[in-house]
Design a protein around this nucleic acid. Structure first.
Lengths: 165, 165
DNA sequence: GGCCATTTAGTTGTGCACAACTTAATTGTG
DNA sequence: CACAATTAAGTTGTGCACAACTAAATGGCC
């Protein structure tokens, strides 16, 4: 097959180039995402949190109590993901959920004492993650920017795609 | 930006810097990964494949029939993920699984006629994905390299972590 | 040759992501 | 006011990732 190493005798078609490059980028992003997840899994084990649960706690620590809707916007997650996740956080005693009095459709997510206190123990997490990446702050920052641009482009592409069909 | 806006009255501690930066990188990678997944979901819908199933088919198209073990090494997936996935691909008539005669522990995964034929219809996928990223080939290539380095560092960190405890 | 460690798939259970749907509350419009 | 459209959570079902385990085959070693 005309892959792996292109012998000089055979010119690689553009289609082949696309296929190879694409495979690499999708493999790479997938692998990086899962590797990141693995590091978080190890580091967060002591806290009894999963990676997505940690993201939710980060938002609550940073921005304070808020309705499920806002959490979902911040994390780009819908209620189908957040509802059971929050139920587990509540079972762990880290958050409390209560219907809003003003708008009974909305559910307010509040940190419990334990949930707020966990922030102290989570303080070392970022440093350990950053150390695991082996990157300095500038590298991390640059990568973050690139990923955000990529996400923006991909979201726009999805919007265009779904709009036209 | 110096991270959102720290009111001038409060000096940000180093711990805060780490926390904010980390939050950004973990948010960004998570979001990018899910956005990528979303684009693949749309593009692969016509083929009746999920993104992980597509990755498996890519490997089979590229490297030919092979045992589950090899597929797992290539994709960094274990049998707990691959077994049910391959069962679904078999149910869809794209692959066939058979115990190896030489080594009865091993299961050989083979493309069916339909599975091999699907490659033609998948030919346009990479171009559509690349278009959605809005990146040129050099950008994609650079990002891929960076992600691969990151994955390597993270894997090494996990290995070190699990070895010392 | 017999036995034990290793290897390969598969199974089970937990948790996340997402689509499609339901329920209930609110909002907008005639 | 009445009623349709919208909004917020939740539920259900499918599929993936991974840990922990089981089952069966293989290989090494005495």
């Amino acid at each position: 097959m005309a892959h792996k190493s292109y012998p000089g005798t055979m010119t690689s078609t553009p289609a082949d180039d696309w296929l190879r490059l694409d495979r690499q980028i999708c493999f790479s992003l997938n692998a990086a995402s899962r590797a990141f997840n693995g590091v978080y899994r190890v580091v967060l084990k002591d806290l009894g949190l999963t990676y997505p649960q940690y993201l939710v706690m980060l938002v609550l620590w940073e921005d304070g109590d808020q309705p499920v809707k806002k959490l979902g916007e911040r994390l780009r997650l819908d209620s189908g993901t957040l509802s059971p996740l929050l139920k587990r956080l509540e079972a762990a005693g880290l958050v409390h959920r209560e219907r809003s009095a003003r708008d009974e459709r909305s559910v307010e997510v509040r940190l419990t004492g334990d949930g707020a206190a966990l922030r102290e123990r989570a303080a070392e997490v970022p440093r350990r993650i950053a150390a695991a990446t082996g990157c300095d702050l500038d590298e991390i920052s640059a990568l973050r920017d690139r990923l955000d641009r990529l996400t923006g482009a991909l979201d726009a592409a999805i919007a265009a795609e779904t709009a036209t069909r």
